[in-house]
């Protein structure tokens, strides 16, 4: 166990667990699931710790573990029953919705995205990763990130209507 520095790992967890939980929550839409996801990803990170060398690598590794595990979970049919994937947001309320309603609508809309598109949204627009970094996390080509991102934004706009203005983002991300 000498190669696994528990103190350094604990420092990493203390510094980054909040951000990792938030990203995991956006990917799975459930606090309990997000906590399970982070715990699993951190366990994998701890096992891999000797070859990660520095905290930046550890965070990238954990983020990848969260993302790939979340996608795997969503591909298992059983997990769809855990979230309101069949409930469309109340777009007619957009004009006077308070922050809570908008947040609910966003999470409902995210839940209706295919798992890889949802991961692209979180990685690109919440984690602020570049397309290349996102492709590395997902293990796919940059072109796939572009196409998945464009499809995701288009679907979010369709689902959320006036609650979310993505005009600038879509015009930048989607070639004419």
């Amino acid at each position: 166990m000498a190669a696994r520095d528990r103190a350094a790992f604990a420092d990493f967890v203390a510094a980054r667990s909040g951000a990792l939980h938030r990203a995991a929550y956006l990917m799975v839409g459930d606090v309990g699931l997000a906590q399970d996801l982070v715990q699993e990803a951190l366990t994998k990170t701890y096992v891999a710790w000797p070859r990660l060398r520095d905290p930046a690598n550890a965070e990238a590794y954990t983020r990848k573990a969260i993302t790939t595990t979340a996608i795997t979970w969503f591909r298992r049919k059983s997990w769809y029953g855990e979230r309101p994937a069949d409930q469309l947001p109340e777009t007619s309320e957009a004009g006077h919705a308070d922050a809570v309603a908008v947040r609910t609508s966003l999470m409902d809309a995210l839940a209706q995205l295919p798992p890889r598109q949802r991961a692209v949204v979180v990685l690109r627009y919440y984690e602020d990763l570049t397309e290349a970094q996102t492709a590395a996390v997902l293990g796919c080509a940059v072109g796939t990130v572009k196409s998945q991102g464009a499809a995701a934004l288009g679907k979010l706009r369709a689902l959320m209507g006036d609650q979310l203005d993505l005009t600038d983002l879509i015009s930048k991300e989607v070639p004419a």
Binding site: Y25, A99, V102, Y125, Y126
Partner: peptide, 8 residues
Amino acid sequence: MLDRAAAQ
């Protein structure tokens, strides 16, 4: 919006 939604 993602920031706010993730504030759990």
